[in-house]
């Protein structure tokens, strides 16, 4: 939970609320980019933490971090949590 995961910010979803589409380990998810919106984040890599892009990083840093997170099992866990969350949104009461 405490480690961010690198993802690539690919397009705006809603610029007004600073939501953009990110690709994280093959999964697409809308993330909030308020914390990195100082420079245009589209096309850049970011460390994404619980749905928020927290820092822009370069491509090499992204690759190295992803490798470490895969070793730790954290990358898989983050992706599973994203998938599980999509189900949670649908689940009937």
């Amino acid at each position: 939970m405490c480690l961010g995961i690198p993802g690539r910010i690919i397009a705006w979803v809603d610029k007004a609320s600073l939501m953009a589409m990110a690709e994280v380990s093959g999964v697409r998810r809308a993330v909030n980019v308020a914390c990195v919106a100082g420079e245009d984040p589209i096309g850049k890599w970011a460390l994404i933490h619980v749905g928020f892009a927290m820092a822009l990083i370069d491509e090499d840093e992204a690759a190295r971090t992803l490798e470490a997170l895969r070793d730790l099992g954290e990358a898989q866990e983050a992706v599973e949590q994203m998938r599980a969350a999509d189900l949670a949104l649908e689940a009937a009461p």
């Binding site: 939970m1 993330v31 933490h49 619980v50 927290m54 949590q81 969350a85 949670a88 949104l89 009461p93």
Partner: peptide
């Protein structure tokens, strides 16, 4: 189980008749 507090916000939008509570825990990263 959600991935992000943004998921909890979305649940609140979709379920206006329910009370959606998010458990905010964690250090300064979260």
């Amino acid at each position: 189980m959600v991935y992000s507090p943004l998921d909890a916000l979305e649940l609140a939008r979709r379920n206006p008749e329910r009370e959606v509570v998010f458990f905010g825990l964690g250090f300064e990263t979260t």
